[in-house]
Design a protein around this nucleic acid. Structure first.
Length: 165
DNA sequence: GGAGTGATGACA
DNA sequence: GTCATCACTCCA
C-alpha cells in the first residue's frame, strides 16, 4: 500500500517566500467504496469526487467547523482511496498539521506538485520501522473501524545512517 | 469529560 | 428549505 511509502517522506509547503518542511510520521488509509470509515463510502459527492480521480491529488476537508484535514488521493481512477496525513515530525494531529502548513480546502483537488505549493519529497530516509494500529475517530464505521490502517513511523535512519526515533 | 464550530450530505 | 453528523483540538 502507498501509505507505507509516505512515512519518512517530507511534506513541503511553499507559501509566498516561505518554505515549510516536515517529515511524515503518521498516516491513515481510507480505501475503496465499501470502507464505511471513508467519506467515499457514501458515493461520489462534490466534496469527495477528487477521491475517485487520479492519484497524487490533494483531498482537504473541514471537520468540526474548524479543522482541516490533509489527504492525498491514491489508487487507480474511479477506485476511491486516500491517505490522511495525521502527523509530521513534532506536529501531532491532522488538524495541527494543516494549521502548521497553512493548508485549507482551497488546496483540495490540486495536484501534489511544486506548482500547487504543496508536495512530497524523498530525502533519503531509510530503514523505516512501521507500526500499525486502528484508525482514530471512526467508531461509527462498524467492522471497518477495526482495520489496522493507521501507520506510524517508529524509527528510521538518517543520511548518515544514524538511527532516529 | 465536554464545548466549540460550520461545511456537508440526506431528506423534504 | 431543515437537520444531524463529523477522519479534531483544547481546556477542565
Amino acid at each position: 500500500m502507498v501509505a507505507k511509502e509516505l512515512l519518512g517522506k517530507f511534506l513541503v509547503r511553499r507559501v509566498g517566500k516561505k518554505t515549510i518542511v516536515g517529515m511524515i510520521t503518521e498516516v491513515e488509509a481510507y480505501v475503496g467504496p465499501d470502507d464505511k470509515a471513508s467519506h467515499a463510502s457514501r458515493g461520489k459527492t462534490p466534496r469527495t469526487k477528487v477521491m475517485f480521480g487520479r492519484a497524487g491529488y490533494w483531498y482537504v476537508y473541514l471537520v468540526y467547523g474548524m479543522h482541516h484535514c490533509l489527504n492525498i488521493v491514491t489508487e487507480k481512477e474511479s477506485y476511491p482511496a486516500a491517505i490522511l496525513i495525521r502527523s509530521v515530525h513534532s506536529v501531532s494531529g491532522p488538524g495541527r498539521v494543516s494549521k502548521y502548513f497553512h493548508i485549507d480546502k482551497k488546496l483540495s483537488e490540486r495536484s501534489s506538485s511544486r506548482a500547487s505549493g504543496l508536495w512530497i519529497e524523498d530525502r533519503g530516509v531509510r530503514d523505516v520501522k512501521i507500526k500499525s494500529g486502528k484508525r482514530i475517530g471512526v467508531d461509527y464505521a462498524g467492522r471497518w473501524k477495526h482495520k489496522p490502517w493507521r501507520l506510524t513511523l517508529e524509527q528510521h535512519r538518517d543520511k548518515k545512517n544514524h538511527p532516529i526515533v
